[in-house]
Amino acid sequence: MQILQINLERGWRGGERQTLLTACAQRELGHDVEIIARAGSELAQHARELGFTVHHARQAVSLALWLSLHGARFDILHAQTAGAVTGTVLAKPFHRRPIVFSRRTEFPVSSGQLFTKLKWKCVDQLVAISQAAAAEPRRFGLAPIIIPSATPPITPDTHRINTLISTHQLQGKRLIGTSAALSVEKDPLTLIQAAALVCQDHQDVVFIHWGADGSSSEASRALIKKLGIEKKYLLLGFQHSPERLYPALSAFVLCSTYEALGSSLLDAMSLEIPVVGTRTGGIKEVLADGRGLLATVGDAQEIAKHLDWVLSHPAEVSNMTALAAQYVRNEHDVSRMAQKYLALYTHLSR
């Protein structure tokens, strides 16, 4: 099967990682996979390094033009982002290929509803990565199917872990980590407030925050300074494969206000690291049934209380993390995800 994976994002976040994981797994299963990405993007670079044929488009219009000329030679066009599906749908009268769209967000559609509904109706199959991501399409009368994101086995990077500890003088410290951009929907301000509460009771705890700057960067730095926790809350910026550093953590936390799934949670769970998350979107699905601890969105005290429990109850935490790791192996396997998409592709291509 000839497959084109489409993702025009500039940066490298969960959706871009999932795009490349899907492409790699489908290639390993014997299919011809090409990728169209923004020139100079992280995805384009990584895909090229892995030997994929990579085409370039900058936005929906240039993507539509490229697909109008070349899209017909593929059996399936898989749009991995909202921008990608716009260009793919615009070119449909010319390429006439089946379109799959993976919705990776749970944001409510508050503006442009008519255009979004029409665009989604032009897709041959809309896929949601969680029940939360499926809610808006269902509100529009569509019938998305659920194919969750996946996480591959993670090999700890001992050298990077040792460098992290020595560079920031973290010997003998217990580390609580998060991996999230400093943007409003990730709610770093609530996490910083929770961190200050935890550190009052646990002098050996340091918070590690991996993530690119965003709309809350300035406010986050100001709050850290105001609370006097500059040495207790380390903003380490964007890093490739932060999950390979997770074995250094005593706990992982994600405080999003909106989150379709939270692949960073899956990484931590797969490594049997206890997880605290907010009761929203896909997080509450992933951490259900005792696989993690859930707190009210925006409630710093409840998040701190859960983290305190994790730090203070190692025996109970061990049972929770074993359950979580088994869940990830069963429900979020990369090969299984790729095969589900391939079954869908085959059905649509008949």
Results as ranks from 00 to 15, higher is better:
Met1Gly: 08
Leu8Arg: 11
Gly11His: 13
Arg13Tyr: 03
Glu16Lys: 11
Leu21Lys: 04
Leu21Gln: 13
Cys24Thr: 10
Arg27Lys: 11
Glu34Met: 03
Ile35Asp: 03
Ala37Gly: 07
Arg38Leu: 15
Ala39Phe: 01
Gln45Tyr: 05
Gln45Cys: 05
Gln45Glu: 09
His46Val: 00
Arg48Ile: 01
Leu50Pro: 03
His55Phe: 12
His55Met: 05
Ala60Val: 04
Ala60Gln: 12
Leu63Arg: 03
Leu63Gln: 06
Ala64Glu: 07
Leu65Cys: 08
Trp66Met: 10
Leu67Asn: 03
Leu77Arg: 02
His78Ile: 08
Gly83Thr: 05
Thr88Arg: 03
Pro93His: 07
Phe94Val: 07
His95Glu: 11
Arg97Cys: 10
Pro98Leu: 09
Phe101Met: 03
Ser102Arg: 07
Arg103Ile: 14
Phe107Thr: 07
Phe107Trp: 13
Pro108Gln: 09
Phe115Thr: 11
Thr116Asn: 08
Lys117Leu: 07
Lys119Pro: 00
Lys119Gly: 06
Trp120Asp: 05
Cys122Glu: 14
Val123His: 12
Asp124Leu: 12
Asp124Val: 13
Ile129Val: 14
Ser130Met: 05
Ser130Arg: 07
Ser130Cys: 07
Ala134Ser: 13
Arg138Met: 06
Arg138Asn: 03
Phe140Trp: 04
Ile146Glu: 06
Ile147Pro: 00
Asp157Met: 05
His159Arg: 15
Arg160Lys: 14
Arg160Asp: 11
Ile161His: 00
Asn162Pro: 00
Ser166Asn: 09
Thr167Lys: 11
Leu170Phe: 06
Lys173Met: 11
Leu175Asp: 01
Thr178Glu: 08
Thr178Ile: 08
Ser179Cys: 15
Leu182Gln: 03
Lys186His: 11
Ala194Phe: 11
Ala196Ile: 04
Phe207Lys: 10
Phe207Arg: 11
His209Gln: 15
His209Asn: 15
Glu218Met: 14
Ser220Pro: 07
Ala222Glu: 10
Leu234Gly: 04
Leu234His: 01
Leu236Glu: 05
Gly237Asn: 00
Phe238His: 01
Glu243Phe: 07
Ala248His: 01
Tyr258Ala: 06
Leu261Ala: 13
Gly262Asp: 10
Asp267Phe: 00
Glu272Asn: 09
Ile273Cys: 10
Val275Gly: 13
Glu285Asp: 09
Ala288Pro: 01
Gly292Met: 06
Gly292Tyr: 04
Val297Ala: 07
Gly298Pro: 06
Lys305Met: 12
Lys305Val: 09
His306Lys: 10
Ser312Trp: 10
His313Met: 14
His313Leu: 13
His313Ile: 13
Pro314Arg: 14
Val317Ser: 03
Ser318Pro: 09
Met320Asp: 08
Ala322Met: 12
Ala322His: 14
Leu323Trp: 00
Ala324Asn: 08
Ala325Met: 04
Ala325Glu: 02
His332Arg: 02
Asp333Cys: 14
Ser335Gln: 08
Met337Asp: 03
Lys340Ala: 04
Tyr341Glu: 03
Ala343Asn: 14
Ala343Leu: 05
Tyr345Gln: 11
His347Pro: 01
Ser349Tyr: 05
